[in-house]
Design a protein around this nucleic acid. Structure first.
Length: 817
DNA sequence: GTGCCTCGGGG
DNA sequence: GTGTACGAGGCAC
């Protein structure tokens, strides 16, 4: 009986069954049921480009490799006319039986003299299938086939045929958020092998639950008591099974919650077979840990925020508190986590506030995921990657997958990833970047800011910048890119693969922006997220072209892009000066002017004239008007010409650019000083007070009034002491602890204070116990801790490091600013 | 300047 | 799994 079924794919994998790779599309049906669609008609393949005139068909067909008693061979070949970086090539599509045969055959073919190159041999089978069959997760497909039996937790449907049904999108995935609290004694590192999970919160659409394994009195109806940690883990598993989520989300759950749960489950020999195919929760630890469940999308919303969203946030730290406050206007509960473990041992009646805290955190991760879902969904639809992959991809990978997905539509064979040697070579290459017009230091009124809308994307589009259009023979002698030392031009006859795609993105975004201009309805958030995703992606193309690991890497293209960028921004500056505007500052794509005697109409007319002369999609846009602002000289501060300015907008809000945040291994005094200075300047707008404050801190350090607790630096030991080649201060201190018979090892938090003397810092770093009052090195804390933490802030206000260090008497404060 | 090391997020 | 991964800053040399 042939059935038809409609579904939205969510997670995709393949399994070898009866010697054949079978694609599994874990999906939601259009009537909201879970299902797994099976498809076994897709065959692995890759491309071979033979050298000119070489005929290798017969040799390919005869190729057979025996490995571990199994033979692998070329099942068939097809001769195809393709393009490689814009040039016509005759290629051979080489098919194999299994995906795992591909690397074996590839290695053999590498030895063949008659082969020019082997391509697309590292595109994973599932991705290859999705690209070739236009399977885009979250959009609607129809399959023809029949239900079948498989060992899966959801019904299986064997498809004969799968086709896109419409572009309708699955917009409300069923989501479950997870958060754990663990037993972590104060000042100790997190040690999952040693310390138990105390509680686990689960938060879903209609679910609020906190499991905890000791009993205490509480009125919280969502708290459920269990007898042991093992039972708590079983309950977690059971809740996930019953809830049947499409997505399990968490905040840093790739790196913390799920790996932790896994380690604890192993201790009790609990099988965490959460996968819809009964596979276990899989933790992969490389540089970046990931947690994967087959069939259920694990979303680590922290990772997405840090990698993709961070650039659009004000906050510079991405902890849950800061992010939730900025993105949701919600806060974390105010509890002292240092007390959790103590209370767990001695004071159970205090535990219920931690349960509230736990559930609240799970709720915040849920809401962040909900809020970002339209953005993620759009990235999924553009790149064709699953939510899981989009979540873990950086910008360069999003661009690359978009290009890979689109390349068949242009009949292009994708270039290979660079070898290690090529990467090294590429890393060595540098080129000239953007143009920066140094601000004249001072205070200004009536500032107008313009910028080129999507400068680099529009340049790439308008000037047809692409590895496939560079220095074409058909356009020799045409206009050259504005580069001093090299002669580069781009084809004027045929649009390149990359420029065509980027222009498509830009126009798609412009259309969406046009729609939301006069449509302030509930669709706004989704459409706005869409246009923003497109913008992020389009803006990444330039970086991608210059990214050392990119397949479509082209330093010449990256070079030409910045060269045109410099050309256009310098052009506006020159024209503005000619029109007698005062140009304050310019960086890359923006220009800051003062109105002076000019009117806003004059400025508008000026911009209009510029726009008439710009090619293609390029456009100069009005960014904003600011009643006042301060610009500082780039010479102030330890670093080069970076964006350093503060602007006051019409609502009276200060916009400060150009300083970074403190790190966790800083002393309390440095963190405190930075926080307080920011508070005084931003909230009270009292610069003199901020300066007085920092001078007091410095003087208090000199006169040793600052208590010892505030100069302790904490650094975690990452490996065995003996494994360090380079012994930093914390390693030296750890060695002394070890000599005293105290057991320190990887994960130990080492506390130390830098004391006075002329030796290197390592030899002056002492345990807090060894240091008497006033023995700390005031100069170290002033010069390496407090001053670096605040100097950039003061630099913006025009107050140098040296001036911070002057004592109060050396300079009259009045009228300083 | 180069190279090694740590941190981020999480409790 | 047809594998595959960062980026910035501080200290020692």
């Amino acid at each position: 009986m042939v059935d038809k079924i409609r579904f939205y794919p969510l997670d995709v994998m393949y399994k070898v069954m009866d010697g054949k790779p079978v694609i599994h599309l874990f999906s939601r049906t259009d009537d909201n049921k879970q299902i797994c669609i099976l498809y076994d008609k897709f065959e692995p393949y890759f491309y071979v480009i033979p050298k000119k005139g070489a005929d290798i068909s017969e040799k390919l067909n005869a190729l057979k490799i025996i490995r571990n008693n199994e033979s692998c061979e070329v099942t068939k070949i097809e001769h195809v006319k393709k393009k490689y970086l814009g040039k016509e090539v005759s290629a051979i599509k080489v098919f194999t039986k299994l995906p795992s045969n591909v690397p074996l055959i590839r290695e053999e073919l590498k030895k063949w003299e008659s082969i020019e190159s082997i391509n697309e041999n590292d595109i994973l089978f599932v991705k290859r299938y999705m690209i070739d069959n236009n399977i885009v997760p979250l959009t609607l497909y129809e399959a023809e086939g029949e239900f079948t039996t498989q060992r899966l937790k959801v019904p299986a449907f064997k498809a004969e045929r799968i086709e896109q049904f419409s572009t309708e999108t699955y917009i409300n995935p069923r989501m479950l958020s997870v958060d754990i609290e663990t037993y972590t004694p104060q000042y100790k590192g997190i040690e999952p092998e040693k310390n138990p999970i105390i509680m686990i919160a689960l938060y879903g659409k209609e679910l609020r639950k906190v499991f905890v394994w000791k009993y205490f009195k509480t009125n919280l109806d969502y708290v459920e008591f269990v007898d042991s940690e093992a039972e708590l883990i079983e309950k977690f598993k059971e809740t996930v099974e019953n809830y049947r989520p499409d997505i399990i989300t968490g905040y840093f759950s790739d790196g913390f919650d799920l790996p932790y749960i896994k380690i604890r489950a192993e201790k009790y020999r609990i099988n965490l077979d959460l996968g819809l195919d009964f596979s276990e929760l899989k933790i992969e630890s490389r540089k970046d840990t990931t947690a994967q469940i087959i069939g259920i999308t694990h979303l680590d919303i922290f990772k997405f925020i840090r990698k993709i969203v961070s650039g659009t946030l004000e906050t510079e730290t991405y902890n849950l508190g800061a992010v939730a406050s900025e993105m949701l206007g919600e806060t974390k509960h105010d509890v002292n986590l240092d007390e959790l473990s103590k209370d767990w041992d001695e004071n159970l009646e205090e535990i219920d506030k931690f349960c509230e805290y736990n559930l609240n955190d799970a709720g915040l991760a849920y809401k962040l995921s909900e809020k970002l879902f339209p953005t993620i969904s759009e990235m999924v639809k553009i790149t064709g990657l699953t939510i899981y992959d989009v979540n873990r991809a950086g910008f360069s990978q999003l661009v690359e997958w978009y290009l890979l997905k689109q390349s068949p539509n242009f009949n292009e064979i994708a270039p290979n990833k660079p070898t290690n040697d090529e990467v090294m070579e590429r890393r060595m290459q540098t080129y000239k970047g953007a143009f920066v017009f140094e601000p004249k230091p001072g205070l200004y009124d009536h500032i107008v800011v313009f910028d080129y809308r999507s400068l680099y994307p529009t340049i790439i589009g308008s000037h047809n910048i692409s590895p496939s259009t560079i220095n074409c023979s058909c356009c020799e002698g045409t206009e050259k890119a504005p580069l001093e030392n090299s002669s580069i031009w781009f084809c004027r006859k045929k649009k390149g693969f990359i420029p065509a795609l980027i222009e498509e993105l830009i126009t798609r975004r412009m259309r969406i922006k046009e729609i939301i201009k006069d449509e302030k309805n509930e669709k706004f958030a989704i459409l706005d997220a869409r246009q923003n995703s497109i913008k992020l992606l389009a803006n990444s193309f330039y970086g991608y072209l210059g990214f050392f690991a990119a397949r479509w890497y082209s330093i010449e293209c990256a070079q030409a892009t910045t060269a045109y960028g410099r050309y256009y921004i310098k052009d506006v500056i020159a024209k503005a000066e000619k029109a007698e505007f005062n140009v304050l500052y310019s960086d890359t794509d923006s220009i800051f002017l003062t109105l002076d005697s000019k009117t806003k109409q004059d400025v508008e007319r000026f911009a209009e004239k510029i726009n008439q002369e710009l090619p293609g999609l390029m456009e100069l846009e009005f960014e904003g008007y600011y009643p006042a602002g301060i610009f500082v000289s780039a010479k102030i501060g330890a670093f080069g010409a970076k964006k350093k300015y503060a602007l006051l907008d019409e609502r009276g809000i200060l916009k400060i650019k150009g300083f970074e945040s403190v790190r966790r291994n800083w002393s309390l005094i440095a963190k405190e000083a930075q926080e307080n200075v920011l508070g005084i300047i931003l909230k009270e707008h009292d610069n003199e007070k901020a300066l007085r404050y920092i001078k007091t801190v410095i003087e208090d350090l000199r006169s040793k009034k600052i208590p010892m607790e505030k100069v302790i630096i904490r650094t975690q030991l990452q490996k065995e002491i003996s494994d360090y080649d380079n012994k930093g201060p914390h390693v030296a201190v750890a060695q002394r602890l070890r000599n005293q018979g105290i057991n320190v090892g990887p994960g130990s938090m080492i506390k130390f204070i830098v004391t006075q003397g002329s030796d290197i810092i390592r030899n002056r770093s002492k345990l807090p116990d060894e240091v008497h009052d006033g023995e700390y090195d005031a100069n170290y804390y002033i010069n390496n801790q407090v001053v670096p933490a605040v100097e950039r802030i003061f630099a913006i206000l025009g107050c140098s490091k040296e001036e911070l260090l002057e004592s109060k008497e050396q300079k009259k404060l009045e009228g300083f600013f």
